[in-house]
């Protein structure tokens, strides 16, 4: 597969949130606003890119038996770097994401791509895969985040969008709203992909 195909598969066909249903914990937890969704998406993409590149480069050097601990060390190094850089240069975003940055370590998407893709593929293909998966994850988070922020708070990116008489349904930015949104969007994606294949 070429660079484009590796990239595009992460956006719809193998979208990590809606098709592979990976990394659901951060997906449900941070998507209370679009801003958080974008921040989490970009942070995860950066970590994914870094870990995919290094794991693909070192794939012949790392013995099979110790591959999981090696992957975890590489991934957590990138997560800590992201955490420190964000705290230093984007403190507001760092504040908003809080605990979810360290939790990228256990995000199944990153471990999953390391194990299923980067450890078996060339560096170039791994970069394309990381960008595709990261973009797919970010878009999925933005989709969930914007639905929840719009209905639950009446705003998008903090700007009021709906007419002032609109009474926000607070449940949408609380945990139940995350499950409702996720469930409906999963159904929609399943419907679209079934229509496409038939």
């Amino acid at each position: 597969m070429g660079f484009g195909a590796e990239f595009y598969k992460g956006i719809f066909k193998e979208n990590p949130s809606f098709r592979l249903v990976l990394g659901i914990c951060p997906t449900l937890a941070v998507t209370t606003s679009v801003e958080n969704a974008i921040g989490m998406g970009l942070a995860a993409t950066f970590v994914l890119l870094g870990s995919n590149i290094f794991i693909a480069l070192l794939r012949n050097f790392i013995p099979d038996k110790v591959r999981i601990p090696s992957f975890i060390v590489i991934i957590s190094t990138f997560v800590t770097i992201t955490d420190l850089v964000m705290a230093a240069y984007a403190p507001d975003l760092h504040n908003a994401l809080g605990i979810f940055i360290p939790l990228i370590v256990v995000n199944c998407i990153i471990m999953g791509r390391a194990e299923a893709f980067a450890s078996k593929s060339s560096t170039g293909a791994s970069i394309a895969d990381a960008f595709g998966m990261g973009t797919g994850f970010t878009l999925a988070l933005i989709l969930i985040g914007s639905s929840r922020e719009l209905i639950g708070n009446g705003t998008l990116l903090g700007f009021p969008i709906l007419f002032s008489s609109f009474k926000p349904a607070v449940i949408m930015i609380l945990p139940p709203g995350a499950f409702l949104t996720m469930g409906l969007l999963l159904g929609l994606f399943n419907y679209i992909s079934r229509k496409r294949s038939s």
């Binding site: 070192l58 050097f61 790392i62 013995p63 038996k65 110790v66 601990p69 090696s70 060390v73 590489i74 957590s76 190094t77 770097i81």
Partner: peptide, 15 residues
Amino acid sequence: LAIVLTIICCGAALS
């Protein structure tokens, strides 16, 4: 195995 893991951890610690 031990040497490879050590090298990876040292690299991580340095960065």
